[in-house]
């Protein structure tokens, strides 16, 4: 029986964001934008969706006079990612 894929993670950009954050302690918005190749607007929307779901923490601060957005995966986000990978495995091994 196939496991249901988490619809929140089964999106190209959101999955890319979570996959990136799972390997890092924290990452700046600019870094995520560079790595995913997404537009700032789209990235902001997807980050907000992940934050609302409790999968990532978003810390807004200043580096000197420049505003800075840092993202960090939460324990809930790690569990969701692991469940998603398990679900994907069940499809691959069919």
């Amino acid at each position: 029986m196939f496991k249901e894929l988490n619809p929140l993670l089964h999106s190209e950009l959101r999955l890319a964001i979570i996959s990136l954050l799972i390997s890092l302690e924290e990452a700046d918005f600019i870094y995520i934008k560079q790595q995913t190749g997404a537009t700032a607007g789209n990235l902001s929307i997807q980050i907000e969706k992940l934050r609302t779901a409790g999968y990532i923490d978003v810390i807004k601060s200043f580096k000197g006079k420049m505003p800075c957005t840092t993202c960090k995966i939460t324990a809930q986000g790690i569990t969701a990612f692991e469940d998603y990978v398990e679900a994907i495995k069940s499809y691959i091994n069919k």
Binding site: H10, E12, S19, S23, I88, I92
Partner: peptide, 9 residues
């Protein structure tokens, strides 16, 4: 999906 995960990691 796996390709994205692998690429980002």
């Amino acid at each position: 999906s796996l390709a994205i995960i692998s690429q980002m990691i």
